[in-house]
């Protein structure tokens, strides 16, 4: 069954300090796609995957959505249930969620609308087939 909705972590709060793999420090609102790509290249354990949003349905829990992703070259189908305000990082677009107004209200993080077809940054462990 899909994982339970994620309680929102603190690091999405505007102004949070994020350390990239090369040690550089950036604010969460200033992160760019290249930051994730370069950090994954430096990391010996992690690999970046492109995860395309295929479906968005209302979740089983209140205030949650069920998002189906097609992950990586193998297009593995992965389904996650998250709160509507949970932000994903979309390649070339930045932070996006199913309810950007709520994300901005809670985190002061400017956010776009997450839509079917958006390609999100996700991670897998290197060496996982």
């Amino acid at each position: 069954s899909p994982s339970s909705p994620v309680v929102l972590p603190p690091f999405f709060m505007r102004g949070s300090i994020i350390q990239l793999a090369d040690g550089e420090l950036k604010r969460v609102e200033d992160l760019k796609t290249e930051d994730f790509i370069q950090s994954a290249e430096i990391s010996s354990e992690l690999k970046i995957d492109s995860s395309t949003v295929e479906r968005i349905d209302s979740g089983q829990s209140p205030n949650a959505v069920l998002i189906q992703f097609s992950v990586g070259e193998l297009k593995a189908q992965v389904c996650v249930e998250v709160l509507v305000e949970y932000p994903f990082f979309v390649f070339g677009q930045g932070w996006s969620s199913c309810c950007p107004d709520r994300t901005t209200q809670l985190f002061e993080l400017s956010c776009a609308k997450l839509c079917v077809g958006d390609v999100c940054v996700s991670l897998t462990l290197r060496g996982l087939r």
């Binding site: 420090l25 994730f36 995860s51 992950v71 193998l74 990082f89 991670l123």
Partner: peptide, 25 residues
């Protein structure tokens, strides 16, 4: 005199999801 305040620093990989095929179904 201002009390030193530690600011949390979060690693980059905590911001994006691990989407493993085993999560589906």
């Amino acid at each position: 005199n201002v009390e030193p305040r530690s600011v949390p620093v979060f690693p980059w990989h905590s911001l994006v999801p691990f989407l493993e095929p085993s999560q589906s179904g």
